[in-house]
């Protein structure tokens, strides 16, 4: 059986084709203002990457904030459900999934079959999501990828007072004027966002292994801040940004059985 998962996130639309345990295609497109159009483009790209035609697909399932507008399918699963399903498929011993995207952060506690037991969401505030690091990296004029790595070089913990991405930007500017090293600022920023995510994780409880998914998982500074803050290792699956799409593809398969 071949199934497809479409994850219509706030910033990117991701498509994943799955056959048994093999991923046939992974593609993504910027969501822009027309997520449905972006989904069509990502889908077409996945078809050409895998050499399949639409008829080869047995089932399709959508997830993500824009799942209601998804073309191709009416089947859908919540982001929380897809995150839990996808993560436990890749790492069966994980019970706590942290999903941080550009515009929201989530913590999901799941059972051994990947069923959601509890979850907490922080959305609509950039201070608790990936946008926070982007805003600050821009203010510091450091490329985002480097900004995360910079944090690992820091040896000093300085507190950030602002709890808002906008106010934090001004705070960072004054730290720069005060000649604070960029790596220490980077660490302060990552610690700040991590502490907000961790408090959310604690509300669902930390049990067994913890995984981090979503685009922010590529940021080593953030992973490090999470691990230090929770005093536990954090598993980062391969292709962390596609875990939601994978969860959707798995759901499509299970539902059509």
């Amino acid at each position: 059986m071949i199934t497809a998962g479409i994850d219509l996130g706030a910033k990117f639309v991701k498509v994943l084709f799955l056959k048994d345990d093999e991923v046939l295609a992974r593609t993504q497109e910027r969501a822009g203002f027309e997520p449905a159009e972006a989904a069509k483009r990502a889908f077409a790209a996945a078809l050409s990457e895998s050499g399949l035609t639409e008829n080869d697909l047995d089932a399709i399932c959508a997830t993500g904030a824009g799942r209601q507008v998804s073309p191709f399918t009416r089947e859908s699963i919540t982001e929380v459900g897809a995150a839990a399903r996808g993560t436990t498929y890749l790492h069966p011993s994980v019970r706590t999934v942290i999903d941080v995207g550009g515009e929201e952060g989530r913590a999901v506690k799941c059972g051994d079959t990947g069923k959601v037991e509890d979850f907490a969401v922080n959305e609509q505030c950039a201070a608790g999501a990936g946008s926070f690091t982007e805003t600050i990296a821009r203010a510091l004029e450091v490329p985002l990828e480097e900004f995360g790595k910079l944090s690992l070089k820091s040896t000093k913990t300085i507190p950030m007072n602002a709890q808002c991405a906008v106010f934090a930007e001004s705070e960072v500017v004054s730290l720069m004027h005060a000649k604070t090293p960029k790596e220490d600022i980077s660490r302060a920023v990552h610690d700040a966002i991590a502490s907000r995510i961790i408090s959310m994780v604690r509300r669902v409880g930390i049990s067994n292994e913890v995984a981090l998914i979503g685009g922010v998982a590529y940021n080593p500074g953030f992973v490090d801040a999470l691990e230090r803050g929770m005093e536990t290792k954090v598993v980062v699956p391969e292709h962390p940004e596609y875990v939601g799409a994978l969860g959707a593809a798995l759901t499509a398969r299970e539902r059509s059985k």
């Binding site: 408090s199 509300r203 409880g205």
Partner: peptide, 15 residues
């Protein structure tokens, strides 16, 4: 004051 949501989190589990 600016982080009560986070500071009170341990007292307020989801369920």
């Amino acid at each position: 004051r600016k982080k009560v949501k986070y500071d009170c989190a341990p007292c307020k589990p989801v369920t």
